[in-house]
Amino acid sequence: MKNLKLCLAILPLFTIACTEEYTGEVIETAHKTGSAHKTDIGPDNTANPFDIAGSIHNEILETLEQTNFNSQSVEEITILIDSVSAVYPPELVLLSSNATMSTRVSEIIWIVNSNNAIDDVLAVSSLGVNAKTSLLTFVNSLVLASDGPYEDIHSMIVSYEADILSNTEFTSDDKRIILTTTSVARYSIYGEKRKDKDWETGVTKIAAAVSGAEECMVLGLKMALTVGLCHNNNITQ
């Protein structure tokens, strides 16, 4: 373990629910600060029953950005994520015993080092054939739109989520995985736009969210966080 410096004294403990049926109010966490990409629209979409995934993703990321850490390996990043992802919001009950990032190191390394992570992840995903095609088409469209105004991106994602919710061919697992992923993408892009940053690692983060969401919502958002931090710190092993 190399130089993992955490200011854990200031880190809140988050309670997260891993459930396929969770619905609830979204907690908007993005700060309304000046930016070249400042928008009047928030990242939330309360019609998505897994919208909390993206909200918690951004909440944890903002907490991490206020800490002084120097993780040097994928394993250290997973320990960091597990350390801050426990109790949030407080009214939720931890339902999953298999959302621990430290058990996913080899999977994360595989995703981080993939030249085409979304295709590789979908190839082994439990998603149905039509659901895989739908998600891949959406991701490609999202990449093309990523340089545009956030309002347009938000509208596109929300419209896609409405289509997923109304699709009678997709299974409940298909919908859970896709809607967890779109929530993380919607909030992640919002955070990057507010900070005047390019959404450079977006597709790989989406792939990580899909991979984790196979198990549950919490693992989906934690996988996305972990892969994003690995990319931002040029960590591949």
Rank of each mutant, 00 (worst) to 15 (best):
N130R: 11
V112N: 10
D174G: 03
F14Y: 11
L80P: 01
H57F: 15
L225W: 00
V129L: 14
N233K: 10
L122T: 02
I206C: 10
T46Y: 04
I189G: 06
I81A: 03
V26C: 02
R104V: 05
A30I: 07
S211F: 11
T46W: 04
S166W: 10
N58A: 05
D174S: 04
E75I: 10
K205H: 09
R176Y: 05
C230I: 06
I41A: 00
D82A: 13
N234H: 08
G42P: 00
S166C: 11
A145L: 05
N140V: 03
K195P: 01
I52K: 02
L64V: 08
T204S: 15
E214Y: 05
N116K: 09
E76P: 07
S96V: 02
L135F: 15
I108M: 06
G54K: 03
N98W: 02
E62S: 07
T67V: 14
A30E: 06
L92Q: 14
T171M: 14
G34H: 09
G212F: 02
N45P: 00
A47L: 11
A208D: 11
F138V: 09
T181M: 04
V158Q: 03
G54Y: 00
P12I: 01
V203A: 09
M1L: 06
P43C: 00
Y187A: 08
E75N: 14
E59A: 13
I235P: 06
K222I: 05
T63L: 07
I109W: 12
I189T: 09
I56N: 13
V227I: 08
W199I: 09
A162D: 12
C7A: 12
E192Q: 14
A36V: 09
V129F: 15
M156R: 11
R104L: 08
S71A: 12
L92S: 09
A224C: 07
A47D: 09
N167P: 12
N116H: 07
G212A: 02
I189V: 13
W110E: 13
S211C: 13
L4N: 02
Q237V: 07
L64P: 03
V112L: 09
S83E: 11
G148V: 01
I16Q: 08
